[in-house]
Design a protein around this nucleic acid. Structure first.
Lengths: 226, 226
DNA sequence: AATCAATTATTAAAATTTGTTAGATAAATA
DNA sequence: TATTTATCTAACAAATTTTAATAATTGATT
């Protein structure tokens, strides 16, 4: 898989940028139009998209929109248009950055590296998870509520983490149970609900009226990011 | 916990930016020097750091370096210095972006939002089905009518989803029943109509004159997308 | 238009399922 | 062994689903 797909119709610029990017260790693919870009992306994945806006045919904005519809691939826009509206539009479509021409290759490479680090380096091994007034420090295996440590035991911690990593999603009881206790395990009956109860006692403001761990009747529980 | 810690010694600019950022929904804390910033960060976590470079005492670069040493908090640098070297230096220290003064508040907010989405996955993919003034959040298993939550229980939810996924089509009673209750199941007699009734009570403007769930005599029901 | 049978709607209450909770017991850990 | 943590029990509470009886509506027939 290539690291970068560059969509740029000016051949000379494309050549220059490619040299710089490859010198920085990125594997670069190049296409010259929006149509080609979309076709290319149908066949193959890429880690980052470097996208000129002014292209013949389908323009960069449209490509950006399509890419965002499909996933969260980082998109870096290059444009000769200097208007603020164009930039805002780019961000609205989900671009990660917007660079105005003329492009300084060193800066471009710096930005790409930064974006790579954010998207693939640090973020993937995010050690700390924030969720409203809750902070879950994965490396320390510890949870803080309003900056005050909360003492959770192992099962409670696992439960909370699993739910907090899927905020806003209803996880059904079987899923939760299987993830934490393992497929079989005789118990099940009440043991999950009991643990939910204890968790709520520890992290809910008012455990009788849970705001954070909502129960979805007949299905399971849903963690709300407050 | 605050979303953003702004480190900026120009009080007027700080005030202006704060207004824009808060309007965009971010909780903003503000300190005016590098020393304060470091002290602040020792006590409290923050989701994003907005950092001016030219500060009295400890400058922005030094703060950035410290922050990176401690973790992967997103850092956005603002600077009055327009040199390419300064920018490269910022990126080298691990900054996520570098904005030159004068700062356009709209663009700043756009960049911050983009960075938030990248770092915290706010643009997390959710399965949502829109149908007129109804919104069905499949991942949360929840339904909203005019943005207000509607409390549906399991069977009602299944029914609604099944119908909403086939708008404008008349689904006959057997089909609905079999899909939700399963082929056999003694009951049937009234149980479907009762559930339809309850659904209508919850999502129709005037349950006596259903606009959304129409009954098709002798056949079944038809969900209208309004 | 009036009648009739079939179908659907409404309602309330019974039956069932599911959730909560506190406390007892067992298991693991120090 | 003392202490903590995990699991289970059982009674209770609450919400959901079904049943069943009655009312209203529809479409066909006269």
């Amino acid at each position: 898989m290539y690291d970068i797909l560059m969509v740029e119709d000016e051949e000379e610029l494309a050549g220059l940028l490619r040299i710089y990017m490859e010198k920085a260790g990125f594997a670069v693919a190049w296409v010259a139009s929006g149509e080609e870009a979309l076709l290319w992306l149908q066949r193959e994945k890429v880690k980052l998209l470097l996208l000129d806006i002014t292209l013949p045919g389908i323009d960069g904005f449209a490509v950006c929109r399509e890419v965002r519809r499909a996933g969260s691939t980082p998109v870096l826009i290059i444009s000769a248009r200097v208007g603020k509206e164009d930039q805002l539009n780019g961000f609205r479509l989900g671009a990660d950055d917007y660079i105005e021409k003329p492009v300084d290759p060193d800066l471009l490479v710096a930005k790409i590296s930064s974006l790579f680090a954010r998207a693939y380096g640090i973020a993937s091994e995010k050690e700390i998870l924030y969720s409203g007034n809750l902070m879950i420090d994965k490396s320390a295996h510890r949870v803080y509520k309003d900056k005050m440590p909360v003492e959770l035991n192992a099962k409670e911690y696992e439960l909370l983490l699993l739910m907090a990593e899927n905020p806003g999603k209803t996880l059904d009881k079987d899923f939760l149970f299987n993830k934490i206790w393992g497929a079989d395990s005789f118990s099940e009956s009440q043991t999950l609900t009991v643990h939910i109860k204890m968790l709520r006692n520890k992290i809910e403001e008012n455990p009788r009226k849970p705001e954070r761990i909502k129960t979805v009747w007949g299905v399971g529980y849903c963690y709300e990011e407050l």
